[in-house]
């Protein structure tokens, strides 16, 4: 690990004034610093800031950026009103990691692409312009949607997939004192020609909270497929909230993990479902739309049929109609 200066912020304005890299739970940043994939010169420890509350506001919930993943998953309001979020969190990492991982850090965690982790290999995300070894290499865990010639990495978070289903907004404070609220689609960038830029967060800005709006109507589910039954990242995951009334789907929100460079949501998929009587044929049509531009790179080709199956299984579970 490269040497760095360590600064402990006592207040949010301390943190915004200090020039350096934020460390919260440290479970992703330190992992990458040990490998010298990340080499910050100064760390700003934000763990003492007062951002640990989950506050109920009018029909909504404001989750402080430092709320640990385990507390968020266990919160009684989240378990009751936003079960997709509890389920997604509980499907991620391990008990020890969830105790340390924070809401803000989880959103900002970086890809698990093996070449990104290996400083002996070229990687456009780690070292712009060096190339992408994954396209023709070990890409089993990598993306089939939203990729570019430069990078095919996935965003590995489970939590973010559920937040995308729930139309969460990320609260960001900037050094000038401004606060803005962004949806996850506004927050995460697609790789394009600059895979090193993953979010719109500017240097010096701090995620202070995540806002969950009113719970969606209907039932919610999170299903994750991985290489072992626990303590593994998603190959494919589906988060969903679906409402059926009078035999028709009236509301649907779906987001996908393991498929793209950000938690993937496609309004076209929901349009296919809303207003329809749930049936295997309708579920297949939704999968057709989701996967119309999907592209595998060899070792991850299996994700295309797997996604179809997981999507259909989740829709079947939530609507009570056989796949």
């Amino acid at each position: 690990m490269r040497p760095f200066d360590y600064v402990r912020a006592e207040t949010t304005s301390d943190a915004l004034r200090a020039d350096g890299r934020i460390i919260a739970g440290g479970t992703n940043l330190l992992d990458l610093m040990k490998l010298e994939v990340e080499t910050p010169e100064r760390l700003i420890d934000v763990t003492r800031l007062d951002l640990r509350e989950i506050e109920a506001q009018e029909n909504s919930l404001r989750i402080g950026a430092l709320v640990p993943n385990s507390d968020l998953a266990a919160d009684e309001r989240v378990r009751r009103d936003y079960p997709v979020l509890s389920r997604a969190l509980l499907a991620g990492a391990s008990g020890q990691l969830r105790n340390k991982a924070t809401t803000g850090g989880n959103l900002m965690q970086r890809t698990r692409c093996p070449y990104f982790y290996d400083t002996a290999q070229p990687c456009n995300k780690r070292e712009p312009g060096t190339g992408c070894q994954a396209r023709e290499g070990f890409n089993r865990i990598l993306a089939i949607l939203g990729t570019s010639d430069k990078c095919i990495a996935t965003h590995p978070s489970d939590m973010a997939v559920a937040m995308r289903v729930l139309d969460a907004r990320i609260e960001i404070e900037s050094p000038s004192g401004e606060t803005r609220l962004l949806t996850l689609d506004e927050f995460y960038l697609l790789p394009g020609d600059t895979p090193e830029r993953e979010t719109v967060l500017e240097p010096g800005e701090l995620i202070t909270a995540v806002h969950l709006p009113e719970p969606p109507k209907g039932r919610q589910a999170y299903r994750k497929v991985r290489d072992r039954a626990s303590y593994a990242f998603a190959l494919v995951s589906v988060g969903a909230a679906v409402n059926v009334e009078g035999g028709k789907i009236t509301d649907a929100a779906l987001a996908f993990g393991g498929l793209g460079p950000r938690p993937w949501r496609d309004a076209g998929v929901e349009e296919v479902l809303i207003g329809e009587t749930p049936s295997a044929a309708v579920f297949d049509k939704a999968a057709d739309v989701l996967l119309r531009d999907a592209r595998g790179f060899g070792a991850n080709d299996f994700k295309i049929p797997l996604t179809r199956r997981v999507l259909k299984a989740v829709l079947s579970e939530l609507t009570g109609v056989a796949q």
Binding site: Y6, G25, G26, D31, G95, L97
Partner: peptide
């Protein structure tokens, strides 16, 4: 998990956190 310690009663991986924190 070989490095598991309790911090304020909660289990964590002591390898992925800094002593100074």
């Amino acid at each position: 998990g070989a490095c598991t310690a309790l911090v304020n009663g909660r289990r964590i991986n002591s390898c992925l956190t800094l002593a100074v924190m």
